[in-house]
């Protein structure tokens, strides 16, 4: 995803000289080419995220389009008030790139994980919040956030995420994409956990529960039209995200559903359950522990459906 991001940004930077890249001293083996190509538009701002974010706002208020990059917890939380006051209050054209969404930074531990960014970004007025499910969506999201003036938060994972879309897709901010069809239930997901979600859907199909999967890459603005259709079509809806079940995609969908009640609709949020992850292990290991492997996701869904039988 990082490579998809930087390659796309390079292409856009060729076309638009106002694009700048600011990093909080991160991006080893990622930014070298950009730096070489656009030496006057690349700024390593040091390990000073709050300052970097305010500077980005000042640059944007002077006509620039800064992309501000760091590991997600550092950029989303350390610089939060700067994002709120300097970026969002001024509707400044700052694009925030948080890398390592969820548990991606495995052994680095809970300081480097993040399960809160979608929640805190989503609550900010003017902010667009996107968590692409694969590198293809990353590539398509960049030109879109450039087209939409104003603040945006793009949550990336890291590297090696599988391509989940097949063939040509239409990517629009605020428009979910059906990535797998199904008749009985629907899983709504964002970020690369979509891969396990998709695998879970195939497992459920085998259990004779025909399962659809939607990439809700944009958490804000939420695709409420699509949601409304989904609630009409399916008896159960599940959200799956590598984020706290509080306030993120699941929170956003729950808010919509609470105000648009449909009788007998089964709904459950699957994600990290209000916890810090202190376990040590690789990515698959951690996802399994936190019930986010394909098997565990499928199991949770089956259990939930049974409960409502």
């Amino acid at each position: 995803m990082r490579n998809a991001f930087i390659n796309t940004l390079e292409k856009e930077a060729n076309k638009n000289r106002n694009i700048l890249l600011l990093t909080g001293d991160l991006g080893f083996t990622v930014f070298e080419n950009f730096q070489k190509k656009f030496s006057k538009r690349f700024f390593n701002m040091g390990v000073a995220e709050a300052n970097m974010m305010s500077i980005a706002a000042g640059l944007a208020l002077s006509g620039k389009i800064p992309f501000v990059y760091s590991i997600a917890p550092f950029i989303a939380l350390r610089a939060y008030e700067q994002i709120r006051n300097d970026v969002c209050m001024h509707n400044a054209n700052v694009k925030i790139i948080g890398v390592g969404g969820g548990l991606v930074y495995t052994h680095a531990g809970p300081t480097h994980h993040i399960a809160e960014d979608l929640a805190v970004m989503r609550v900010l007025p003017k902010m667009t919040v996107i968590a692409p499910i694969d590198p293809i969506e990353v590539r398509l999201a960049i030109p879109q956030i450039l087209k939409k003036k104003g603040p945006a938060y793009l949550r990336l994972a890291k590297k090696g995420e599988p391509h989940l879309h097949q063939g040509k897709i239409k990517f629009e901010i605020g428009k979910g994409i059906i990535i797998k069809k199904g008749k009985d239930i629907c899983l709504i997901t964002c970020g690369p956990i979509a891969y396990n979600t998709l695998k879970a859907a195939f497992l459920l199909d085998k259990e004779k529960i025909s399962t659809a999967v939607v990439s809700m890459h944009t958490i804000k603005p939420l695709d409420t039209n699509l949601l409304e259709n989904l609630t009409k079509k399916y008896k159960a809806i599940f959200t799956v995200e590598e984020h706290s079940v509080i306030g993120g995609l699941g929170g956003a969908v729950a808010e919509f559903l609470a105000e648009n009640l449909r009788k007998n609709l089964i709904f459950k949020r699957i994600g990290l359950n209000d916890c810090f992850c202190h376990e040590i292990g690789d990515y698959d290991f951690l996802r399994k522990i936190y019930n986010l492997s394909a098997q565990k996701i499928a199991k949770t869904i089956i259990r939930s459906l049974k409960k409502h039988e």
Partner: peptide
Amino acid sequence: HRVLGVELTTGSLGHGLSVGLGMALSAKI
């Protein structure tokens, strides 16, 4: 900021210098 002549909405201390720095950096670029 919505008031003409005001460059930046402030109130929480510590932001103005960094934002101004961004404006100065933009002028240099």
